[in-house]
Write a protein that binds this DNA or RNA. Structure first.
Lengths: 235, 235
DNA sequence: GTCTATACACAGATAGAC
DNA sequence: GTCTATCTGTGTATAGAC
């Protein structure tokens, strides 16, 4: 068992990451608003923030299909007309949210493990980073998971692909670890599914963990303990 | 590590359990249709089956809010009028589905562990049974999880309570096991959350596991292996 | 760029014949 | 008990003033 448990805490991660929430809205502006009448990036970012935050608040309670554009207008403080100058249809709002989120998160995950060499450390860093990112963007993660089935075919496939990429990253680290004799021979594919489920539970049941006072660092350490018990135990 | 791994497989469980799918529809009839014009139980059960199965099929794709009563009419083969003679409102259909499911599953879970004494065996049986029940009623489990947020306050609280009961059953078994010196001292509450997440992943990602050819017995054995690694390892 | 007012389709729900 | 036809409210989306 390694002693790297003094590794980055959540606050440090927030300071170190290049990501700013603004990037999220800027990306949405670039992808979606170029063809609309909205031209000023600054204005767009301010309003996209209002729209996205309102969408998350409403959909947490009643889901995307249950949210009406009137709801969104009220909650965001923008008129119906203004909303439709940012998104051609309600469905496009959904697609943009999923697409931009997946894009941003893909960047963040890749940059996190790039420099780590040891496969076991790589796995630890990957899990911790994944949890930190999901903590930072919890509303998006929850929304994305719950609404994935409502996406159009093409976007839904991208979502599933992103899920599988996460699993693959874990499987690869485990395979490499086994080859180097660092971990036991197990069904890595199945293990990766289980590990992914543990990670997802953090953002799917955020309220429960908050109520109990569990911190994201504790949760990360706990998952890693599970994995070490499962993989480092002598036979 | 115990040697009870020759325990009940899924097919045996199906044969042994007292539960029949008909019970589900009968319960719904008793609770919901007494005040309607529908009087013949046999007719009611036949149609409630059509309605429930159609609801699951549609909602897996687009969620309850995205399902229209016309969709449901088409898919179930009943007319709009007929549907409304079984349920006063669309919302009542949702509430009935959740309520009846929770009720039936509560019965099944309780009867499964009643006779087991050893706390570790109790935990193993509980997990295996939970997975078998969720396999038997997968569409319901998926639906229930995804639509819980759309429930009215009262029903939603019951759902959350049922979730917590599952966790409590696991925590109790672990506490008892620790008292008897059978398992390590760990954060049992947090462990129970993680174990629950593993169980839920089975019915939330049913398609993925089917594609990979993972059986429910394999999945159960795997979860139990994780738990034994985490709890039985010598310090 | 943002608003108000409005078009128009479609949703949930019911009446009443059979 | 089940159907078809229909009512009425609400949802998405747009037009056009400012």
């Amino acid at each position: 068992m390694s002693n790297d448990d003094k590794s980055t805490d959540y606050q440090s991660y927030l300071k170190e990451t290049s990501f700013r929430k603004e990037d999220f809205y800027r990306q949405a502006f670039i992808e979606d608003c170029k063809s609309t009448r909205i031209k000023k990036e600054k204005v767009a970012i301010k309003n996209l923030e209002k729209i996205f935050e309102a969408t998350f608040r409403i959909c947490t309670r009643k889901g995307f299909q249950g949210m009406t554009m009137r709801d969104l207008s009220m909650e965001s403080g923008l008129s119906m007309g203004a909303l439709y100058s940012y998104f051609a249809t309600k469905e496009e709002l959904l697609n943009t949210l999923e697409r931009v989120g997946n894009y941003q998160i893909g960047i963040l995950l890749n940059e996190s493990v790039a420099k780590v060499k040891d496969p076991l450390d790589k796995l630890r860093v990957y899990i911790r980073t994944h949890l930190y990112i999901s903590e930072m963007l919890q509303p998006w993660f929850f929304f994305s998971y719950m609404e994935a089935k409502n996406l159009a075919r093409r976007e839904r496939e991208k979502y599933i692909q992103a899920e599988l990429n996460t699993e693959k990253a874990i499987v690869d680290a485990l395979n490499e670890g086994e080859k180097k004799g660092l971990v036991r021979n197990r069904d890595h594919q199945l293990a990766a599914s289980v590990i992914k489920a543990m990670i997802q539970d953090w953002y799917l049941k955020r309220g429960k963990y908050a109520k109990r006072g569990t911190t994201v660092e504790e949760y990360a350490a706990n998952i890693i303990e599970w994995i070490e018990s499962y993989y480092l135990q002598t036979v």
